[in-house]
C-alpha cells in the first residue's frame, strides 16, 4: 500500500462551519420527505387557527402576524429536534467532534441550517397566509423578508443550544418546547408585531424599533450560544 498522504492543515472555523452546513443541507435534501412533512405541519397549523376562531374573518386578519409566527415556532421545534436526532443516530455527533471539528462550528452550522430551513418555510407560508386570512402586504415585501430572516435567526440560535441539550435527555420531545417557548417570547413578540405592521400599515413608524429589538435579541443569543455551546457537547 502507498504511504499515507501528507497531513492536511487543520481547517478554520469558517471552513468547518461551511463543511458541516453543507453536510446538514445534503441530509435535508436526501430526506426531503421529512422536510415536506414539516412544511405540511406548518400549513395545517395555519389552517387550524382559522378553525379555532370560527368564521370571524376580521379576527383572523387582525391576528395574522401572530398566527404566522406561531406556525413557524411549532415547526421550528420539529425541525430542531430532527436536526439533532440525525446526529444521535450512530453517535454521529461524536464522530464529528473527534474528527476533530470545532464545537463552535457545530453550533454555527446547526443554527444557520435551521435558519435557512425556517426562512424557506416562512416564505412558503406567506402566500398561504395571504390567501387564508385575507391579508395583504401593505408596506413592502422587503420589510417582510427582513423580519422573516431576523425572526428565524432568533428562533434558531437558542433553539440549537436547547435542542442539543434535550436531544440527550429523557423526554426530549417535551423538554425542547418547555425550555424554548418562554425563552423566545421576546423574539416572537417583536416578530409578530412587526409582521402585523407590515400587513396593516405602520402609521406611527414603529417597525424599526421592533426590528431593533429583534436584532438585539439575535446579537445576544448568537453570542451566548457561540460561547456556551461547546460546554454542552464536550463532557
Amino acid at each position: 500500500m502507498s504511504t499515507t498522504p501528507p497531513r492536511p492543515r487543520a481547517i478554520g472555523l469558517v471552513a468547518a462551519t461551511l463543511a458541516l452546513l453543507r453536510k446538514d443541507l445534503l441530509i435535508e435534501w436526501r430526506t426531503r420527505a421529512r422536510l415536506n412533512a414539516i412544511i405540511f405541519f406548518a400549513l395545517a397549523t395555519l389552517l387550524m387557527f382559522s378553525f379555532a376562531l370560527g368564521p370571524d374573518t376580521k379576527l383572523l386578519e387582525k391576528n395574522a402576524g401572530g398566527y404566522f409566527w406561531l406556525a413557524i415556532l411549532f415547526a421550528s421545534v420539529l425541525a430542531l429536534g430532527e436536526s439533532f436526532r440525525v446526529e444521535s443516530e450512530n453517535a454521529c455527533m461524536d464522530g464529528v467532534r473527534l474528527a476533530p471539528a470545532d464545537a463552535r462550528a457545530i453550533f454555527l452550522s446547526k443554527a444557520l441550517g435551521n435558519t435557512l430551513l425556517l426562512t424557506a418555510l416562512g416564505a412558503l407560508l406567506v402566500p398561504v397566509m395571504v390567501a387564508l386570512y385575507g391579508v395583504r402586504i401593505v408596506t413592502s415585501f422587503m420589510d417582510l423578508g427582513l423580519i422573516l430572516l431576523l425572526g428565524c435567526l432568533a428562533l434558531s440560535a437558542p433553539g440549537t443550544v436547547y435542542a442539543a441539550i434535550s436531544s440527550n435527555a429523557r423526554a426530549r420531545d417535551v423538554l425542547l418546547p418547555l425550555l424554548l417557548f418562554p425563552l423566545v417570547i421576546p423574539a416572537l413578540l417583536s416578530a409578530a408585531k412587526a409582521t402585523t405592521l407590515v400587513l396593516q400599515g405602520d402609521p406611527m413608524n414603529q417597525f424599526n424599533s421592533w426590528l431593533g429589538l429583534l436584532g438585539g435579541f439575535n446579537l445576544i443569543y448568537w453570542g451566548v450560544g457561540f460561547v456556551l455551546f461547546p460546554r454542552i457537547i464536550e463532557d
Binding site: P158, V161, Y162, I165, L179, P182, L183, I185, P186, L189, S190, L213, G216, F217, I220, Y221, V224, L228, R231, I232
Partner: peptide, 18 residues
C-alpha cells in the same frame, strides 16, 4: 447551568419587550 444563564439573561429582555 447553561439553561439557568440563558434563562436569566432573557428575563430583562422579556421585561422590556413586554
Amino acid at each position: 447551568a447553561v439553561v439557568a444563564i440563558i434563562g436569566a439573561i432573557n428575563l430583562p429582555i422579556v421585561w422590556f419587550s413586554v
